Computed example of a mutant assay.
Amino acid sequence: MKQSGNEAHPTISDVARHAGVSRATTSRALSNYGVVNSETRTKVLRSAEELGYVPNVLARSMRAGSTQTLGLIIAEVGLSVFDLAMRSVIESASLQGYQVLVTNTNEDLIAERASIRVMLEKQVDGLIVVPSAVVDLEFLSRSDLKGKPVVLLDRSLVTLGIPSVTADNNRGARDAIEHMHSLGHTKIGLIVVTANLEGETGERPRGLISTIHDRVEGYHAEMAESGLPVNPDWVRYCGDAGESALTAVRAILDSPEPPTALLASNGNMSLAVLRVAKERGLVIGRDLSLVGFDDAPWATVLTPSLTVVDLPIEEMAKAAVDNLIAQIADPSAEQASVTLPTRLLVRHSVDDLTAHPGAVIRTHAAPATPLRTQKRALTSP
Rank of each mutant, 00 (worst) to 15 (best):
G184N: 04
H185G: 03
H185D: 00
H185Y: 05
I188N: 03
I188H: 02
I191F: 09
I191N: 03
V192S: 06
V193I: 12
V193E: 08
A195D: 09
L197Y: 09
E198M: 13
G199Q: 06
G199R: 07
T201L: 02
T201S: 14
G202M: 11
E203V: 15
E203R: 09
E203F: 10
R204A: 14
P205A: 13
P205T: 09
R206D: 15
G207C: 07
S210W: 08
D214I: 08
D214M: 11
R215W: 07
E217D: 15
G218P: 13
Y219T: 11
H220S: 15
A221H: 14
A221Y: 00
E222F: 06
E222M: 15
E225C: 10
E225F: 10
S226N: 13
G227Y: 13
G227W: 14
L228W: 08
V230N: 10
V230K: 12
V230E: 12
V230S: 14
D233H: 12
D233P: 02
W234R: 09
W234T: 10
W234D: 03
V235E: 11
Y237K: 03
Y237S: 06
C238I: 05
D240E: 12
A241M: 12
G242R: 11
G242I: 04
E243A: 14
S244G: 04
A245T: 06
A245L: 08
A245W: 02
L246F: 13
L246C: 01
T247M: 10
T247H: 09
V249W: 05
R250N: 15
R250S: 15
A251G: 08
A251V: 04
A251S: 13
A251P: 00
L253Y: 02
L253T: 08
L253S: 05
D254N: 11
S255N: 00
P256N: 01
P256A: 08
T260S: 14
A261N: 01
A261V: 05
A261M: 07
L262T: 03
L263H: 08
L263Y: 09
S265Q: 04
N266H: 07
G267D: 02
M269P: 00
V273H: 03
V273C: 08
V273G: 01
L274F: 06
L274Y: 04
L274S: 06
L274D: 04
A277C: 11
R280W: 10
G281H: 14
L282D: 11
V283G: 11
R286I: 10
D287K: 11
F293D: 00
D294G: 00
D295A: 03
P297I: 01
V301E: 14
V301M: 15
V301K: 12
L302Y: 14
P304T: 13
T307W: 00
T307N: 01
D310I: 01
L311N: 09
